[in-house]
């Protein structure tokens, strides 16, 4: 133990101070702006202009109810929840289905079809946004819930199918084969064997997808024009955009937008980092 300590000491002490300094700077640069944001949300616009950095002298809670009503946060939250939950469930279910097909039923088409999904991991949706916009218009789904959900599901499938295929491949073939011999249909095998076993990969996928869709801005911004279909990022930008000078309300709306995902992160920290690293191996 003592030798171990001595050896750790040979990690240059200057270097160690340097590392601590960089970490400290990074920590400060993360916590301070977020803290400043929340603190400013308790100031009136007038106070913010007089005192942009200091502690609120006359703290007020009024920004929150006003911002909540004017930015229509109930609608924004409802829509964000709807798109996030529905697309996540669809991505998980469709990925498990296709993953099961790719992993356990032999077909000459698999390399080509599975490969087309793998390409999608690096082929970003941003690079086709205008053609996608024109396509959604063409099929008459502009400004509809379906017109947002389909791209969200399609966007989540490459990673989903990559992870699910890998996972289901690790289930021994004999499990499926013996169920087949017992006369079980593929549907039954899928629902009563594969789905229950796939819980870990489903959790990883759910977390990746929730974080991705909850924060997604580009697609909803482009594919939706009515207030009733807007999600949090789009609504917040519209409300607190650069032309707005109601600082107090801006800060409150940004805080409202930030809090849920930060809480989600603090709760599922371990799973999120696991999901990110699982996803990053290939993509």
């Amino acid at each position: 133990m003592s030798t171990n300590k001595k050896q750790k000491g040979d990690f240059n002490p200057l270097l160690r101070i340097f590392v601590y300094a960089v970490l400290a700077i990074f920590t400060f640069l993360t916590i301070y702006p977020l803290f400043w944001l929340v603190m400013s949300s308790f100031k009136t616009t007038n106070e913010f202009l007089r005192n942009p950095m200091g502690w609120p002298i006359e703290p007020t809670l009024n920004n929150y109810p006003t911002a909540w009503v004017r930015a229509q946060f109930s609608t924004l939250f409802t829509n964000s929840l709807f798109f996030t939950i529905v697309s996540t469930l669809a991505v998980i279910f469709l990925s498990l289905m296709a993953g099961f097909g790719f992993a356990k039923i032999k077909s000459k088409a698999t390399p080509l079809l599975h490969g087309s999904f793998i390409i999608g991991i690096l082929l970003t949706i941003e690079s086709v946004m205008i053609p996608l916009f024109l396509f959604i218009n063409l099929i008459g789904l502009y400004n509809t819930r379906t017109g947002v959900l389909i791209p969200y599901i399609g966007m989540g499938l490459p990673m989903g199918i990559y992870l699910c295929t890998e996972f289901i491949r690790s289930i021994p073939d004999s499990v499926v084969e013996s169920a087949r011999i017992d006369g079980a249909s593929y549907a039954k095998i899928f629902l009563s064997i594969v789905v229950p076993m796939a819980k870990p990969v489903a959790v990883t996928l759910a977390i990746l997808n929730v974080a991705g869709v909850w924060n997604e801005f580009m697609l909803v911004n482009m594919l939706v024009s009515s207030d009733a279909l807007r999600t949090l990022p789009v609504g917040i930008l519209k409300f607190s955009g650069p032309l707005s000078s109601r600082y107090g309300l801006q800060f409150a709306s940004l805080t409202i937008g930030m809090i849920p995902i930060v809480i989600f992160y603090l709760f599922f920290r371990k799973e999120i980092t696991k999901g990110v690293s699982a996803g990053a191996v290939k993509g």
């Binding site: 289905m97 296709a98 086709v128 389909i150 499938l157 593929y186």
Partner: peptide
């Protein structure tokens, strides 16, 4: 079974990307 399992994901994905 293969077709039924793979097709739904394929249709949506190709509609969005391809």
């Amino acid at each position: 079974a293969y077709l039924l399992l793979v097709l739904p994901a394929l249709v949506i994905y190709w509609a969005v990307i391809a």
